[in-house]
Amino acid sequence: MTRIAALFAVALTCLPCVLAAQTDPVQTARRAAVMLDQAGLALQDASGARDRVAALTQTVRAYEEGLTALREGLRRVIIREQVLRAELDARREEISELLAVLATLQRDPETLLLLHPSGPLGTAQSGMLLREVTPALQSRVNDLRAQLDEVTLLRALQESAESQLADGLDGIQTARTALSQAVSDRTDLPQRLSADPARLDALLQSSETLEGFATGLLSLDDAAPLPPVSQFKAARGNLPLPAQGTVLRRFGEADAAGIKRQGLVLATAPLALVTTPSAATIRYRGPLLDYGNVMILEPAGDVLIVLGGLAQVYGETGQVLPAGAPVGLMGGQDPAASAFLRAGEKGSGNGRTETLYIELRQNGQPEDPAPWFAATKE
C-alpha cells in the first residue's frame, strides 16, 4: 500500500471513532485535528504519485472527512462548554459560600479552630466534626476545580480550531485545484464511444424530461460492449454514495413545492467531491433541463446512473472511468473559518447546503437507488 493510501485509510478509520464519541467532545475534536494533519501529508505525497488523479481524489476525500469530523467535534465542544457554564452559573451561591469557608480555613490556624470553650471534651468533639466535614469539603473543591479546568480546556480547543479550520480549508482548496488540473491533463482513460455532437445537441434541445433524454441517449451510438448487467447487480447494497452527505428526500418523496422525483436527493457540503460509484462510461456531461450540470454514467448495458446538480463536471463523453473516479464538484463555497466558528457558537446548521440528485435507471425505467448504496439500504 502506498503512503497516501495508508494515510487515507487512517482518516477513514478515524471518522467512525470521531462520530461515535458522543460524550467526549475533547477526543472528538482532537481526532479530527489528526485527520486534517493526515490529509495534509497526503496532499504533499500526491504530487509524486503515479496516478495523480486517484491520489488527489483520496486527498480531497480525506480533507472532507476531517472537516466533517472537526465540525462535529467543535459543535460538541461548544455544547459541552455551554452546559458547564450553565451549571456553574446555577451554583453561583454555593460557590460563593464554598470560597468563604476556604478563606476562613486559610486565615485561621487549624489549632485555633479546634479549640472549644467547653474544654478538652468539646475540643475533641469539634475535631471529630471537622474530620467528617473536610472530605466532603475537599470533594466539592475537586469537583469545582475539574469543571473549571474543563471549561478552560474547551475554550482553548475552540481557539485552536480556527487555525486548524483555516489550514484545512486552504488544504482542500489546493487539493481541488490540483485535482481539476490532473483530470484535465489525463490522457490514459480508454474511450468506449464517440458521440456525434450534432445528434447529441438535437436530442438535448428536443427533450422535455430527463426520462426522454435518457431513453434517447442510449440509441445515439454504437459502442463497444459493456460489462454484463449481472456483474453490476452483484454490487447491489455495497456501492458507495457519490458524495458525502445525508439523504434529504427519498425515491418518490415530494419536496416543499410538491414535486416528486424518481431518485434520491442528497444534502452535501459546498464544493463536495462527486465520484462514480462503480466503473462506468460517461454518456453525457453538461446542463440538462432544471437539474443543473448533469453527469450520466453507464455502468452496464441498459443501466444509467444520473447525477444532477453539480457545479463543475470532469471528463469527456465516451470515457470509461474506474470506480471511485472524480466526476465533478458541487456548488457553493467554503465558509471562512471565523464564519464557521460563529455558526457553531449559535448551534446553527450542519454545513450541508448543496443538493445532489441521484437517479438509477434500468431498461428505461427509474428504480429506487437507495437499496444499491451501502449507506442508504434498509
Rank of each mutant, 00 (worst) to 15 (best):
L144M: 10
D188S: 09
A42P: 07
S207C: 02
Y291D: 00
A375C: 06
G40T: 04
N142G: 05
L43A: 13
P287K: 11
Q231S: 14
L289W: 08
P109L: 07
E354D: 11
G237D: 03
D302K: 15
G347N: 05
I296Q: 00
I95S: 04
I78K: 11
R140T: 03
A42Y: 10
S207H: 06
E208D: 05
A54E: 05
R361P: 03
P228A: 08
V151C: 13
A9V: 02
G351K: 06
S118R: 15
R145H: 12
L88K: 14
R199P: 00
L114P: 00
V327P: 02
R80G: 05
G331Y: 01
L112V: 02
R283P: 01
E208P: 00
R131C: 00
R176S: 02
Q58K: 10
E65H: 15
A124T: 05
L310R: 03
A375H: 07
M295P: 00
F8G: 15
D108K: 11
A257F: 14
L115I: 06
M1F: 12
A243E: 01
E132D: 05
R155N: 10
Q22F: 15
R107A: 10
E97C: 06
E64R: 09
S96Y: 09
A46S: 13
A146W: 14
D37K: 09
P120F: 12
D255W: 06
L248P: 05
S338Q: 10
A9F: 11
T104S: 07
P135S: 02
A100P: 01
A300L: 07
R250Y: 06
A156L: 14
G301D: 09
I172L: 09
E94W: 15
E378L: 11
I259E: 08
A195W: 08
L193T: 03
S184Q: 10
Q106D: 11
S278H: 12
L148C: 09
L204H: 11
V18W: 01
L329K: 01
L99H: 14
F8W: 15
P228W: 10
R261P: 00
E64T: 09
A374Y: 09
Q231N: 07
L144G: 01
A55K: 13
A103D: 08
L226M: 13
V10H: 15
G40L: 12
I305V: 13
L157C: 07
E65R: 12
T2M: 12
R261V: 09
Q106C: 03
G351Q: 07
A6Q: 14
L102V: 02
A49T: 04
A280I: 01
L98F: 14
L70Y: 08
R61Y: 00
A223M: 09
A272V: 06
D368W: 08
T355W: 04
V274P: 02
R30P: 03
D290F: 07
